[in-house]
Design a protein around this nucleic acid. Structure first.
Lengths: 117, 117
DNA sequence: CAGGATCCTGACAGATACTG
DNA sequence: CAGTATCTGTCAGGATCCTG
């Protein structure tokens, strides 16, 4: 039942096992406190560097930012391009799969805007 | 900045205060583990009774189901209609505001389906 | 600059039992 | 039937300091 999902999202097995419905599955992928926001900004500002992302989302901690970036990468939603320079430089860009969520994120953004000034 | 949001979603002040972007706001409303799933089934099976919802989402516990229902009600996304009979009967139906999320939920469902069999 | 390593805490979440 | 009450555990998320 979830075999296909686990094939495509290998690290999912460490997070949640069985999804009664596909909404639960999608929410496991983007439903954390920061992941949707991060993916949104990565899409809108690609390529974006670690520090820039931190500036755009100031409230997120380094630990959460880096661990969530890793999860997004493991889920194949973003791609991490590291330049072996000193000081290091890392850029993040969305993958095709990440871009497939753009419409949803845009809708989330739009809906929320109606209740904010 | 969030004054309007707090007006319309009074109980939000107990959950999260400042939203850097509207995606974060929307996710606070529907981004929990169960809330999106619950709202989806309430929309699709309205009016739906407590026990029916529990059957559709078997993995959720009574405690979480009832507390999340209360949150959905406080956020004005669903309406709770209680019949003062014995045994009690309660029906849940989406409000206009709840229905305004239907498209988003449908998209979440559609996206997830592509990765499940 | 872009993180990793630790340590810590409260909110989320589950199990079970009970009730008007 | 539709929930509470209680007790417990887990884990996302935060603070802080360290490093190639």
């Amino acid at each position: 039942m979830n075999d296909k999902a686990l094939e495509v999202f290998p690290n999912l097995k460490n997070r949640q096992k069985d999804f009664i419905c596909s909404i639960g599955f999608t929410m496991t992928v983007i439903g954390s406190k920061w992941r949707a926001i991060m993916l949104w900004h990565i899409i809108k500002n690609q390529p974006i560097r670690y520090g820039e992302l931190k500036k755009i989302i100031p409230k997120i901690s380094h630990k959460v930012l880096s661990s969530e970036l890793k999860l997004l990468e493991e889920d194949g939603l973003i791609y991490r391009k590291a330049y072996p320079t000193i000081p290091p430089k890392v850029e993040y860009i969305p993958t095709e799969r990440g871009l497939s969520l753009e419409n949803i994120l845009a809708e989330l953004c739009k809906w929320g805007k109606e209740y904010m000034s």
